[in-house]
């Protein structure tokens, strides 16, 4: 799953470069330029991918550092 999430991150970066609709001046819902609608979608997709990343790609051993430093703080 970890690798799947990183592949999704790469997809986000690739789909961010939406050259195929460069000169598209279509308005969605009558007021949102298509490029804006599309990139709002990218922003929402990014939040979802990062949620998955915090679940499946979270670094290990961090709590150990936290506990160690808490003890240091307590001693200080």
């Amino acid at each position: 799953m970890k690798y799947a999430v990183w592949i999704l991150v790469v997809f986000l970066l690739v789909f961010h470069q939406d050259y195929w609709q460069w000169n598209n001046a279509t308005l969605d819902f009558g007021f949102l330029p298509r490029s804006l609608t599309y990139h709002i979608g990218i922003s929402i997709a990014a939040a979802v991918v990062w949620m998955l990343a915090t679940k499946f790609c979270w670094p290990e051993g961090l709590e150990e550092a936290s506990e160690h430093s808490k003890q240091e703080d307590a001693r200080a």
């Binding site: 991150v9 961010h16 330029p33 804006l36 599309y38 922003s43 990014a46």
Partner: peptide, 14 residues
Amino acid sequence: GAGVYGLLASASGI
């Protein structure tokens, strides 16, 4: 124009 959002905002989100 509207492309400024893709230029920096959605890129920054990632």
